[in-house]
């Protein structure tokens, strides 16, 4: 590893890997910290991706990410399977420390840490996590053969998880606190057409019940305020994501929800030489293709910055 690197990329979803491909092809010899357990990003726990252009028949999320990683490997980039645990971003020389305790220095940094699953925030949700409460249908669906389970959420990921879970479960109830869904029409139609999926709208989950494992949910009708209890053996939470910006909090500008703020249509943060892309920045589109696009922008912005310094 050189003493002073041109560019370090933190994170490895479509944004991080795309930034690495562009930076490597620009001969900037990027180092990319892909994450020790989060390598590949959010797509690693999805199933089929049908809307990434170029894959006419669709592609499995993990396969797409494996393929992007291989594309990075073709060029002069160094992939490190570890996390960055501390960053010092001010000044001309940025210092980053990894999980193994090594420090790496760079003239520019691209932040692509993505987002983490959002929790509902119920006390028993955490206690019963791994005991019936799950955030990963592709990991845990298998354990719910012939059982009645609930999915909470109203976006594409909730629809996708509900559909996927019907492979195993006898019934999947999709609970949403409103009567309008954020999900795309095709995903809603697919869920509505699935005979194993039942919609429970205008309801929110107010407690998860069970001692050693989940046995039911306490629900509240958001229109009438009436509370009820329903039996379920599993709860899959798909209510969205939170940007993973804790590490840079206090060093660069974040908005009220914790997303990194960038300048106009660029990927520039308020700190010179620091760029941000992907789900860490984007609270609007949050797609694999938009993340990849912003990763490309970040590499080009960084390249221009380095040329001028």
């Amino acid at each position: 590893m050189q003493d002073l690197n041109e560019i370090v990329i933190v994170g490895s979803g479509p944004a991080g890997y795309t930034a690495a491909i562009y930076a490597a092809r620009a001969q900037l010899k990027p180092i990319i910290y892909e994450g020790s357990v989060t390598a590949g990003g959010a797509l690693m726990t999805t199933t089929e991706v049908e809307n990434f252009p170029g894959f006419a028949e669709g592609v499995m999320g993990p396969e797409l990410m494996e393929s992007m990683r291989k594309q990075v490997e073709r060029f002069d980039a160094q992939i490190i399977t570890d996390d960055i645990v501390a960053m010092k971003l001010s000044g001309d020389i940025k210092e980053l420390t990894d999980g193994a305790g090594n420090t790496v220095k760079a003239k520019s940094v691209i932040l692509a840490m993505g987002s983490a699953y959002k929790e509902i925030g119920l006390p028993n949700e955490k206690r019963l996590s791994g005991r019936g409460v799950s955030w990963c249908a592709t990991c845990d669906g298998f354990f719910y053969h012939n059982q009645e389970i609930a999915v909470v959420g109203g976006g594409d990921s909730a629809m996708e998880e509900a559909n996927f879970l019907t492979k195993f479960a006898s019934k999947v109830v999709l609970i949403h606190r409103r009567d309008l869904f954020r999900a795309s029409k095709i995903m809603i139609q697919r869920a509505a057409a699935n005979p194993k999926i039942e919609f429970l709208i205008n309801h929110e989950v107010i407690d998860v019940l069970g001692e050693g494992k989940v046995v039911g949910l306490k629900l509240k009708n958001t229109l009438t305020g009436q509370e009820s209890v329903k039996d379920f053996t599993g709860l899959f939470v798909a209510i969205g994501h939170l940007p993973r910006s804790e590490l840079v909090k206090g060093q660069i500008n974040l908005n009220n929800d914790g997303y990194v703020e960038v300048e106009g249509r660029t990927t520039k943060t308020n700190v010179s030489g620091v760029f941000a892309c992907g789900d860490l920045v984007d609270y609007t589109y949050r797609q694999a293709i938009t993340a990849a696009g912003s990763g490309c922008q970040a590499a080009l912005d960084a390249e221009r910055f380095l040329a001028g310094h």
């Binding site: 020790s36 570890d82 996390d83 791994g130 005991r131 990991c139 354990f143 719910y144 494992k213």
Partner: peptide, 28 residues
């Protein structure tokens, strides 16, 4: 052992589960 999420890492001492770690996490 009531596994419903993986990875689950159970620690056994004298045949009993004394700790259960659910979900992947970094080495440190």
């Amino acid at each position: 052992y009531g596994i419903s999420s993986i990875p689950t890492m159970n620690i056994f001492v004298d045949g009993q589960v004394v700790k259960s770690i659910v979900g992947a996490r970094p080495k440190p």
